[in-house]
């Protein structure tokens, strides 16, 4: 469903991704873990075209987002890119709701303006999604009136409203305290049960082990280990063990 191969990315000469290849199958939940600066968020952002790669290839379904010619990345034309990126939903660490719109508008306007759905259809979908994330009664609120956990749940509903084939999360709970983290993780856990294809960058090791079909451990710009939660725990990768040790402290 999603395949990224031989991705290279530098920021001002510093190599952040060094020949990273990752693929996600339909219905699979993949968690990407690793220390800060390991490149895990950058990889997710590259896949969603929020960062441009230096070289490599990314395909979604049968369509190519970016490929490489003579070692240089060549992106699809603008319109094509937009259509392709719509196949993916993205949930940010800092929610990034639109503060000047109500919760309902945050969910409806992308549907009407981008997918040209009717307002009625959009509202029906929005209300259904809001009650699914436990916020059915908050449609008329503005984002500033919600807690961080509620905002993040709205952000998840907003992403789902466009019916993405893959849902991507970039450290969705890093800005939240433990209690609010729990309510957001519950929503993601439910999505995993429904076999949504998901790619989750997270610090929550316990959560990753619980929901992910496969865990990818990144270290210094490369994938250092990957496998099912059991495999990766038994694999004995040194960096992973050190990382886990730090988490336990």
């Amino acid at each position: 469903m999603l395949s990224a191969s031989h991705i290279r990315k530098t920021f001002d000469g510093a190599e952040v991704l060094r020949d990273v290849s990752l693929s996600v199958k339909e219905g699979e939940v993949v968690a990407i873990i690793g220390r800060s600066g390991s490149g895990k968020s950058t990889l997710l952002r590259c896949i969603n075209h929020l960062e441009k790669i230096d070289s490599g290839e990314i395909t979604i379904g049968k369509d190519t987002l970016v490929s490489s010619v003579d070692g240089k990345a060549v992106y699809a034309p603008q319109d094509r890119l937009r259509a392709l990126c719509l196949k993916m939903g993205f949930v940010f660490q800092s929610y990034n709701l639109f503060p000047h719109w109500t919760v309902l508008d945050n969910l409806c306007i992308p549907q009407t303006a981008v997918l040209h759905r009717s307002r009625r259809e959009a509202e029906k979908k929005a209300l259904a999604l809001l009650s699914r994330v436990g916020l059915g009664d908050r449609g008329s609120a503005y984002p500033c009136q919600l807690s961080g956990g509620q905002q993040q749940r709205v952000a998840i509903a907003r992403a789902l409203a466009l019916d993405p084939e893959i849902l991507c999360f970039d450290e969705p709970t890093s800005a939240l305290d433990p209690e609010l983290t729990r309510e957001v993780l519950t929503v993601i856990r439910d999505l995993a049960k429904e076999k949504h294809t998901m790619l989750i960058v997270t610090h929550e090791m316990k959560f990753a082990r619980e929901v992910a079909d496969r865990i990818v451990f990144m270290h210094e710009g490369v994938i250092a280990a990957q496998g099912t939660p059991d495999e990766i725990m038994k694999g004995g990768n040194e960096q992973l063990l050190a990382f886990m040790g730090d988490l336990d402290q």
Binding site: F90, F98, P110
Partner: peptide, 20 residues
């Protein structure tokens, strides 16, 4: 983040400017 959210939701550049 407002531009990034608009981009991942598929808004065009002019929609992003005018509406967000």
């Amino acid at each position: 983040g407002q531009y990034e959210a608009a981009q991942v939701l598929g808004f065009t550049r002019s929609q992003t400017f005018m509406r967000i």
